[in-house]
Structure formats: C-alpha cells, structure tokens
C-alpha cells in the first residue's frame, strides 16, 4: 500500500500553548509539497512531529498506512522518511565519504562480528557500500572532495552533502527543513534545480519547509499554508498567491481590500 504520508487531526500542545491544532494534510508518492507560513506558525513543530522528535498530543500521522508517531527517529528513518536539518548537522569529524557511509549503516547485511572476521562476503559488501556512496557523491559533484573533512566544505556543499546523506538512507519521502536558509540567489537557483532533479531521479515525495517564497513558488506542486498552528489554505502555487487568507496572514487585513 502506497498512500504516502498522512496527517489526520494532528494536534500538539506544550503546556497551555496549542502549537498545532487539528492539522490535516497528505503527501502523495512522488509529490513535492511546500509547507509555508509566517514566523511562529508551527512549521518546524510539524517537521518535528513527522520526524519523531515530538509525539502528537492527539491525532495520527501515518506513512503508507503505518503509524509514525510513537516511533523513535531511527525507526522513522527505517520506514523510508529521511530529513535534513535547518542548522547543518553533518558528522564533523568524518570525511565526506564517511558521512554518506554512516547513513548506509541500517541497510547493511553484515554486523559487528563480520567486521572482525572480515570474510569475503563482508569485504564485498564494504566495496559495494563505498561504490554506492561514491556514485551518489558523483551525482552531486562532491566526488573529488570525498576524502576531505565534511566541515571543510563550503556552505552550499555542506547543504548538498546533507541531502546526499539523507538520500543514502534510500528514502521514499524526503523532508527538507529550510534548505535555502543563508543561500545567495544563485545558490538558491542551483538548489531548486537540485530538488527537482532528485525528486525525478529517485521518484521521491518531498516535503519542503521554507521561508523563501521564490523557491517555494518555483518548485512546489502543492502548497499548504500554516498560521497559528492551523492550516489556512492549501492549493497550487497560483491559488495560494491569490488566496485572501494567505495575503492577510502575510501582509495584514488591509492588503486584501485593494
């Protein structure tokens, strides 16, 4: 069964604060959904709910029919949901290649004892892991830097490596948390091309949480808008741009009159 990610009446409150209220939306396989909203609207909270950092107070989050909530982050990744981080969280003491290898651990057939016996099957798998990692790095233009330390990369490359690392977990759904943050316009253009490319190539569903309207409007097929923890609109970029509630949320009530 492949129904993608589904949020049904999801709410979470921190003490008396209702951060997200009765949120409903779905991401279908192979779809690129944007999640936008003014500061403090609850975008990151939604992200943390899906990735298992928070557990919803009520409601249900499911991925291809299986419940996501109550699983640990690593369990959710094993379901096929990978993420990147808003503030880059690479494994800073490891090389570029090893960052990718570390993300492939969960697919290994061989465990710790095989690493001691170092039999032919183990060495073969080590080789194939390295080949797969190198192939991924090659696609994203990071192959030449594969032995460099991850933190020695420039900002744009670090963001790209985060995406490569997430892809190495072989996800079906990729969650991108503000990938354009801190990028200049030409880097943003490259990022848009990159997101489109990985979506097509790996047939991924993508959830993009982003502040930058140009990026969101440029690549998303569907957009959901949050304000004060509630969904106020959902539709194509065109519909969203002319939606009165969205304009009100971003520009204030007076703007709608004109």
């Amino acid at each position: 069964m492949s129904t993608g990610l589904e949020l049904k009446d999801v709410s979470i409150s921190f003490g008396g604060l209702k951060a997200v209220t009765d949120l409903n939306f779905s991401i279908f396989p192979g779809e690129l959904l944007g999640l936008i909203g003014p500061n403090g609207a609850g975008k990151t909270t939604v992200f943390n709910l899906i990735t298992g950092v928070y557990t919803p107070t009520s409601g249900r989050i499911s991925f291809n029919g299986d419940s996501v909530s109550s699983r640990k982050p690593e369990g959710i990744t094993r379901m096929g949901i990978a993420r990147t981080f808003q503030n880059i969280r690479l494994f800073s003491s490891l090389s570029v290649l090893d960052n990718v290898r570390a993300a492939m651990v969960m697919h290994l057939k061989h465990g710790i004892l095989h690493s001691l016996t170092r039999g032919p099957a183990f060495l073969k798998e080590e080789g194939s892991v390295e080949d797969e990692a190198m192939a991924l790095l090659d696609i994203f233009g990071l192959k030449d830097a594969c032995h460099a330390n991850a933190k020695s990369l420039n900002y744009g490359d670090q963001r790209r490596l985060e995406i490569v690392r997430a892809l190495a977990t072989r996800p079906k759904l990729l969650l991108l948390d503000e990938p354009a943050a801190g990028m200049n316009p030409s880097e943003k253009d490259d990022l848009m091309k990159l997101i489109r490319f990985i979506k097509e190539r790996y047939n991924l569903a993508v959830l993009l949480v982003e502040h930058d309207m140009k990026v969101v409007m440029g690549i998303c097929e569907r957009i959901a808008v949050l304000e004060y923890g509630r969904k106020i609109a959902e539709g194509t970029p065109k519909e969203i741009q002319s939606h009165p509630k969205v304009i009100e949320a971003y520009l204030g009530a007076a703007a709608v009159v004109d």
């Binding site: 990735t51 640990k72 982050p73 690593e74 990744t77 094993r78 990978a82 993420r83 981080f85 969280r89 690479l90 494994f91 800073s92 003491s93 490891l94 090893d98 290898r101 570390a102 993300a103 492939m104 651990v105 969960m106 290994l108 061989h110 465990g111 710790i112 095989h114 690493s115 001691l116 170092r118 183990f122 798998e125 080590e126 892991v129 390295e130 690392r165 997430a166 190495a168 977990t169």
Partner: peptide, 29 residues
C-alpha cells in the same frame, strides 16, 4: 580497529559527532 573502520563502525563516530543527526540517519544510537 576493525569494528571502528568498517561501514557498520562508522556509526560510532557518527554518534559521537551528532547523536540527533545519527538517529535521523537510521542509526540505533
């Protein structure tokens, strides 16, 4: 040495560098 240098063993420094990121990469920290 063998444990740490294997692909399986890349999980050890991953946990050291960033436990949250390691968990999000499917590593059972």
């Amino acid at each position: 040495g063998s444990m740490v240098s294997s692909t399986y063993g890349r999980g050890f420094p991953a946990v050291r560098d960033d436990e949250i990121a390691a968990g999000s990469m499917g590593i059972n920290t």
